[in-house]
Design a protein around this nucleic acid. Structure first.
Lengths: 236, 236
DNA sequence: TCATTTTGAATGAATGTTCAACAAACGCGG
DNA sequence: CCGCGTTTGTTGAACATTCATTCAAAATGA
């Protein structure tokens, strides 16, 4: 699905697609079923962001989707399954997003690293409601193995890619770094910036967060990320 | 350095102090009351770590403390108040901890920064159960102003201290950094490492986390944090 | 008509809170 | 040191509420 030209962030209005396209869109019930599931997942993300994990109820989700109470247990078997499906959706969306950015960056490790950092602060995955939903799941992850596994979407694969990039950059620039530790530090910093964005109390915006990440890249790999005239950092 | 001589992490056994020191310790009921409150707060942290925020119930807290059901509503007014008191305790403990480390570090900004990072991975505040409890609160913070305020214990003050340290280091070493962005990056990295430690799926330990932090300090301020013979990084 | 989807009320379990009774410690006059 | 009433702390059952789940009936579309 790549870079998401779609703006999947707004709350979908409850006018179902089924209503306006009586025959072209639905292809029987199969399509409708998928639409409903996605609609409920979106409503779940909204509820998580608005009320937190503990206060998220099926009634609130159903209301948010403009549907009736028992609907969730029909399309998903239980509340638990709905939440897992929601987390799964977010994990897949995030993974597809960074992977697309990575593939588009070509072979240059500096451009690859830059692209990964930029992707993390892209509106498509870094909206207020999605960050809040992520954090809601993080809070429960330790006590639920299923969540814990899915929360590792920024997982071993991502970490390995970072280690590889750091190794190549070190070889190119003769930096005195330890690639594994550096990759871990970068990864942690990106997650930490997400966390601060989510808390949202301060004057931290997506732009300042990205600037902080760029600052660190420039400090670590000065030959690859240099400061321009205006003070902004760009890949060399 | 200052790797926590104290080990305040174990669960306090429920033999109340009151029992064995009939007159010296209690000074009436006042002391007992405080002891009970702390006992319940400890049990709350345990429950949060073991079952997550959503599944933490007053019955579980009471059982964990070895006391009866209605007890919480006597010492705290409500479940909400208990949770706020718990978060408050953790916030104050954390703030006192980094502040003590900072004060003990003297005037050298490099030693100060090193001490702050080390303090973050000290057993006293960075145990599995405390990290899990923190994360449980983070998950609910966005939707609860009270939590949000308290979760900012690593807050503006801490951030200001970091900015100040970064500024002084830059002046000492003529680094081409932007202190505010660098401080934000360091702060975020520390939080992100906490998050990864909490998830705990991987091979990340307190030691490797601290090594990652050191790696970043060394990259950002190479004149102040140098690699020793063994590969380990130390303040110059 | 038949299969599928949706509804909304009924159900039952979980849980925060209240409260009346009980226990322990204290104050105090003897 | 000894009763004895009072205050303080504790218990566990009762209560009320919230909420996930179930399901029979209605609506919808093929």
């Amino acid at each position: 699905m790549l870079l998401a030209p779609m703006e999947s962030d707004a709350i979908m209005p409850d006018t179902t697609v089924r209503d306006r396209r009586p025959d072209a869109e639905k292809k029987g019930r199969k399509a409708s079923k998928e639409v409903r599931r996605q609609q409920l997942i979106d409503a779940t993300i909204d509820s998580l962001a608005r009320r937190g994990y503990a206060e998220t109820t099926l009634a609130d989700v159903a209301d948010g989707a403009g549907l009736s109470r028992g609907i969730v247990n029909f399309h998903f078997e239980s509340k638990e399954k709905l939440l897992v499906a929601t987390l799964q959706f977010m994990a897949e969306e995030y993974a597809a997003h960074w992977r697309a950015a990575f593939d588009k960056a070509g072979d240059d490790p500096a451009r690859q690293l830059w692209a990964l950092c930029a992707a993390d602060f892209d509106r498509a995955v870094c909206s207020r409601r999605k960050l809040a939903a992520w954090c809601a799941f993080w809070g429960e992850a330790k006590s639920r193995p299923t969540y814990q596994a899915l929360c590792g979407s920024r997982d071993q694969t991502y970490q390995n890619v970072l280690v590889d990039i750091c190794t190549r950059l070190r070889n190119q620039g003769n930096y005195a770094i330890e690639p594994r530790a550096t990759a871990l530090a970068i990864n942690a910093m990106l997650e930490g910036l997400w966390l601060r964005l989510m808390m949202g109390t301060e004057e931290v915006s997506r732009e300042t967060a990205f600037a902080a990440a760029a600052e660190m890249l420039s400090a670590t790999f000065p030959k690859h990320f240099a400061r321009e005239a205006g003070g902004k950092i760009k890949p060399a």
